[in-house]
């Protein structure tokens, strides 16, 4: 089924059966259903993708409700220290952090539901606040990647020649850099200096530093495929038609090319979000991401690894949450890709 041409249904000339995607709610032929509506219908039938999409929304909601949980259930904040306190578990009074510095594991009670860390902080509270930070960094990074990559990809593909050559070489250079090394180098430097663009000033400890770094690092991965698609599109008749009508290059790029790369852009959003959340965790593990005491899933796993073998829950809790979140984005994203372009060559991870 060629969905890039919208309503054309190849194959109908060989059979009288109408493809199920073309049938509306009432079972009648939905004349002229657009590609996005067709994609939505396909996605709606993909139960695994929907379930994981729902799981992601649930995780997101929980993280957004972090202050409510902290205030009304756990009665503590993400950075509050309870190192000298005790907590009642099953009628017994236990130290939050015992005499040899071992933090309490999951109590499954309202206080220290998932245990404490070695500073006596509530792991469940930090998990939700950390998730908020991780997802915020991931979302902002994805926005930066998508906007920059779309602009660069469309511009390079449409202009060809010198502009294309320069942009493509620049992308190649970033591409030849290992993602993690480039991310760590930029992250470490900007965490010291902050970002100063004249109008925008960002402090080094801000969440926006890792977001910007991750956003930039992934630009080539999205810009290249978009450029490739635009290179093909610009030879098509509708672009010639627009040019003959006297439309400016800017207008052709915006109103003719951009809508046509829309599905590619949408396909990349969940994949990039998943990669950005993973890279945030990696950078934070190496000390070049979210800066302490700000929690994030990456910094929490990193703290937990330094306390192996004493308190494995400090690794397991944020780690499992991170894997669940990234997994749900990936499965949902795969469903979106299948729905939008069943023949797409874009795959997870690259």
């Amino acid at each position: 089924m060629a969905i890039d041409s919208g309503t054309k249904a190849t194959g109908t000339e060989f059979s009288s059966e109408i493809p199920v995607e073309l049938l509306g709610e009432s079972g009648k032929l939905a004349a002229g259903a657009g590609p996005y509506r067709l994609a939505w219908r396909r996605l709606r039938r993909n139960r695994a993708a929907l379930a994981f999409g729902g799981l992601f929304l649930l995780i997101l909601l929980l993280c957004l409700l972090a202050p409510v949980y902290a205030h009304d259930i756990a009665h503590t904040g993400p950075d509050d220290n309870h190192i000298t306190e005790t907590v009642k578990v099953g009628g017994k009074v236990r130290d939050v952090v015992n005499a040899i510095g071992l933090p309490i594991g999951p109590t499954w009670h309202s206080r220290f539901f998932l245990g404490a860390d070695s500073n006596g902080r509530d792991v469940a509270v930090r998990l939700l606040y950390g998730g908020r930070n991780s997802l915020e960094v991931g979302t902002v990074a994805t926005l930066i990647t998508m906007v920059l990559a779309t602009i660069i990809g469309v511009l390079a593909g449409y202009s060809r020649g010198l502009v294309d050559g320069l942009l493509t070489r620049a992308l190649d250079v970033i591409w030849a850099y290992p993602v993690v090394i480039l991310g760590v180098a930029l992250g470490a430097i900007l965490a010291v200096s902050g970002i100063d663009l004249g109008i925008v000033k960002v402090r080094g400890s801000s969440l926006m530093v890792p977001a910007v770094v991750i956003g930039i690092v992934y630009v080539p991965y999205v810009a290249k495929p978009i450029r490739g698609q635009v290179l093909g599109l610009r030879e098509r008749e509708f672009i010639d038609a627009a040019r003959v009508q006297g439309q400016s290059s800017l207008r052709i790029m915006f109103s003719e090319l951009l809508p046509n790369v829309g599905s590619t852009v949408i396909v990349f959003v969940p994949l990039m979000l998943a990669n950005a959340v993973l890279l945030e965790a990696g950078l934070s593990y190496l000390g070049a991401g979210v800066q302490p005491p700000n929690p994030s899933w990456g910094t929490m796993i990193s703290d937990g690894i330094s306390s192996i073998p004493a308190a494995i829950h400090l690794v397991l809790v944020p780690g499992i949450m991170l894997v669940l979140a990234v997994l749900s984005i990936n499965v949902f994203g795969d469903g979106v890709r299948d729905a939008l372009d069943p023949r797409a060559k874009i795959r997870i991870g690259r």
């Binding site: 998943a274 993973l278 965790a281 990696g282 593990y285 990456g298 796993i301 990193s302 937990g304 690894i305 192996i308 073998p309 494995i312 690794v315 397991l316 780690g319 991170l322 894997v323 990234v326 997994l327 990936n330 499965v331 795969d334 997870i348 991870g349």
Partner: peptide, 22 residues
């Protein structure tokens, strides 16, 4: 495969070191 691409290596590594190592 999906779980594999969704797991950061340092998390997997930490689990291996703890469960198979310690």
């Amino acid at each position: 495969a999906f779980i594999g691409v969704s797991s950061p290596p340092f998390f997997l590594g930490a689990l291996v070191i703890y469960y198979l190592g310690y």
